[in-house]
């Protein structure tokens, strides 16, 4: 599991608090920090993709009664259809070239 988090000001790290880091550590994952990250997407096993406006926070992921009003897409492709691979390349590009 690899996660890139926005870290452009102290407030970002108050939104993503210590509990998140603890959970990632328990799962054996790695955290990368990026100053200018604004994209919100999750990739699973190079074939599933969630892409949209929501931050992966309580307000971003709650229903419309209590959370933010968001829009997003879920896409599941075949392993070789290339669309999810493009997003994976984008993720790796941010990780390699734009993280702290």
């Amino acid at each position: 599991m690899e996660i890139i988090l926005r870290a452009s000001e102290l407030r970002d790290m108050q939104i993503t608090d210590g509990r998140v880091f603890r959970k990632i550590k328990e799962a054996g994952g790695s955290v990368y920090l990026c100053e200018r990250l604004h994209a919100k997407f999750i990739l699973v096993d190079e074939c599933e993709l969630v892409l949209g406006s929501a931050n992966f926070t309580d307000s971003g992921l709650s229903d419309s009664k209590s959370g933010n009003l968001e829009a997003g897409t879920y896409y599941k492709g075949a392993e070789d259809d290339g669309h999810v691979k493009k997003m994976l390349d984008y993720f790796n590009n941010i990780k390699k070239n734009y993280s702290l």
Partner: peptide, 17 residues
């Protein structure tokens, strides 16, 4: 917060700003 990795991230975020 006592989580070490979070503290490092918070410091980096702070200095970015």
């Amino acid at each position: 917060d006592t989580e070490d990795s979070w503290r490092k991230a918070a410091l980096l975020a702070y200095f970015s700003d």
